[in-house]
Nucleic acid binder design. Structure first.
Lengths: 220, 220
DNA sequence: TGTACATCAGTGAACGCGCGTTCACTGATGTAC
DNA sequence: TGTACATCAGTGAACGCGCGTTCACTGATGTAC
């Protein structure tokens, strides 16, 4: 496995030109294949076609690289969730569903990022930028929960922070237990993770007097 | 860190007497400290006070050891959940709550086991005994969900397998995101994981027409 | 437009280290008689 | 109860290997003038 610089496969000069990016990409591949602890820093350098000393120009050590991978993961995932949240502002149930599906889609499409983001043993406190990205990510989930809560009848309206945490825990549980992984470690399921999610959300939101709106009829 | 044989601290003879157990215990400690990938097989031998060749008498390799740790984790956790399930047969909501609390208690008390059980990259298929223990564990969750469903009004009764999967995903999400870990990697929470769980279960089960029974009054 | 030079991003060789695994071996245990 | 012996669970030395990290270095880049 070899990841090139500017021109894709090889090197065009003494300088790599894109080493930082190339290292992050290679790390994503290795994580997807073997998990966040399953490769050596030197291995990464080799995969990218560079001496083992070169990565030290860009990352203090292996952990700093993984933290960068996780940080980018939070950023990208937050952006996608936010986009899903803004897609349709009318129906609270649909908003939560859209955000939830976007969450599962991210976990499925970028299992390596997802693992780096949530694998224990990489504490957020060590890296301020990582912590910030994490908090922004959580804020998006919080906004989605706000939308759901604001649609609830006033007397049945639960604290939206709690709803956000329920939402997140449920999403994370489904993503880590049931979304198919590259190494085939998915559990047998009688339904897709997305359907499982949607059914669970409906049951939960029903208690707040929320039900999905029928889609608007096209004018005839 | 050194784990002894029969008499606790040291060795009493040429033979260790309890090496298999001692290795499993040491692995639990290391996993709790550094995660399932954070230690070497040889390190384990040293911690237990034995030559680096000795563990090979008991485990084919490092992965076989971790699989054994995970298997025992599933067994113990399943036993505790089952006990919680049978504690009080009357109220479906209370049954699910008891099992849920037992789940979180296990994750809190044995974070190393929990991590070994659920860390990706150790596929169940490679080890029949592990797969069996896993399936028995899932069956307990299934029975808890059955109890909840059987209490629901017939016309609102959901498929109990789906409820079991919702239950599990929610529990796993709370356990992995919010239960305090040895390395301090817990996220800030406005309430305890147990309260978060209980509130979520109540909201969810309310949709089935289920509500907690008031505790029976003591006879006066 | 050309040149000098500071800065940057690489090299490659070297180091000490601990790992996983194997091997022939040996001390301890338990059992058949 | 005693002895011979098979089996078991350890030892310790050895191997080749790749890792993380450092170092003085050098090729390329970009900018001031």
């Amino acid at each position: 496995m070899r990841f090139g610089g500017r021109n894709g496969t090889g090197r065009d000069s003494y300088h790599h030109g894109n080493l930082r990016e190339a290292l992050v990409e290679a790390a994503l591949r290795f994580i997807a294949e073997r998990g966040p602890a399953g490769f050596a820093f030197a291995e990464l350098a080799r995969a990218v076609g560079v001496s083992t000393a070169a990565p030290y120009r860009h990352f203090r050590d292996r952990n700093a690289l993984i933290a960068e991978v996780a940080r980018r993961g939070f950023d990208r995932c937050a952006a996608e969730l936010e986009q899903a949240r803004q897609k349709r502002a009318a129906d609270p149930v649909a908003i939560v569903g859209n955000v939830g599906r976007a969450y599962l889609a991210f976990a499925r499409r970028e299992p390596a990022s997802y693992e780096a983001m949530f694998s224990p043993g990489f504490p957020l406190e060590d890296d301020a930028a990582l912590k910030l990205a994490h908090d922004r990510f959580v804020a998006v989930l919080r906004r989605a929960a706000d939308a759901a809560c604001s649609g609830a009848a006033a007397e049945a309206r639960p604290p939206s922070l709690m709803v956000a945490l329920h939402f997140w825990a449920f999403l994370h549980g489904i993503a880590s237990l049931f979304v198919e992984r590259a190494d085939g470690g998915r559990r047998a399921l009688p339904m897709s993770p997305e359907d499982l999610l949607e059914a669970g959300l409906l049951i939960y939101l029903q208690s707040f007097g929320l039900a999905p709106q029928p889609p608007p009829q096209p004018p005839r």
